[in-house]
Design a protein around this nucleic acid. Sequence first.
DNA 1: GTGTTTTCGTAACGGTGTTGTAATACGCTG
DNA 2: CAGCGTATTACAACACCGTTACGAAAACAC
Lengths: 208, 208
Amino acid sequence: MARPKTHDESLRLRLLHRAAATVFDRGAAALSLRQLAADVKTSTTAVYSLFGSKAGLLSSLYQEAVRLFAERLAAVRPTGDPADDVIRIGLAYREYAVANPHLYAILFADRGVQCPSDSGRPREVVETYRPLVDAVRRGQRAGQFGTASDPEVIALSVWGMAHGLVSLVLSGNEPPELAVAGCYERALRALVTGWRGGEGSAAGRAAS
Amino acid sequence: MARPKTHDESLRLRLLHRAAATVFDRGAAALSLRQLAADVKTSTTAVYSLFGSKAGLLSSLYQEAVRLFAERLAAVRPTGDPADDVIRIGLAYREYAVANPHLYAILFADRGVQCPSDSGRPREVVETYRPLVDAVRRGQRAGQFGTASDPEVIALSVWGMAHGLVSLVLSGNEPPELAVAGCYERALRALVTGWRGGEGSAAGRAAS
DNA sequence: GTGTTTTCGTAACGGTGTTGTAATACGCTG
DNA sequence: CAGCGTATTACAACACCGTTACGAAAACAC
């Protein structure tokens, strides 16, 4: 009927791959559609016909990053010690973030900054912490965590601590004379220990 | 000697104030120097003679935000229960972040994104967690925390958990069926409890 | 060979931060 | 009081961005 399509799946992958490379080592802000199109020897129109907009391109990149992240966390196989599984998931979390800081930044970027089109759909990052919830649930059944709190709550606290310490490092807000790397695991273990006997045993009940 | 200066301290404050207002409710990305200059009825040159660049302006804004943040955390007066002081500092942390999300975002933004000029100097955010370290130190003396870890390490874990949970909320990565608001304090208390008896009492020593 | 239709590259639009340049407005001098 | 010197400012140009309108290109139908 008309001229043959060159904005096909192959070009889509090439664009995605090149964009991933740029974002990987220079960040999402350093990604220019003009430069990207020139690198892949096409025009900016290709990005718009294949991804809709720059936000759409970043959204596809986001999907890919989340997939890798979920794979990395799911690769932590359960052992007979669920509490230790939680720690190892936390370590894998940190490992991924340190290895791919810019992809990690895309994962946890502000909602407003990115994906203004499909902001209705929930972000899939939250799906990646399912293995953590499962580990906590197994730990509760094994008596390693108190049953006073839902496993989701305990998992969220671990998730928050991992994300917080990793974010401090990646954003350059690490205390100067104190390396997070050296106490990350100890902090996680302290938290796990704190959930053991149910919360609020020592300092609880005062406020709230 | 020449025409009178209008790019003086007064204009500097007006620019800073107007920029703060814009950043406060629309974020740093929505701040345009042209719009800012028009609002204050001057030219963009004023920003460059007073702040050097947009990054310089944001850096001044950063200083201001850090000052407010430090004030808010220092306003938590020590009581006879240091462990509870730690919790209350954590709650104040969250309160500030939720009340001023965009200022909080400036505080913990990527180093690369912002302040490319004065990136040599250490960031002052780390200074704001001094009250937390002090509270932990008092708690150790009172026997509420184990002495196996430096107070800086314990404080950093609390700092990380607060920052992590708050960041998850602000970036829109909160689990859908689970409000952080409802378990934030419980998580902090669990962590404090976990540091009580020295770390690693239950799940320790397995890895590492 | 002409028409039609789909597709794509180019160029333009409105916007940004930044910088070069020319006009301004005063103090000093004659 | 006129005019110069100069510090200081406003304006316009520059290079770049994401996005979009539009005309050219290409393959099929007749």
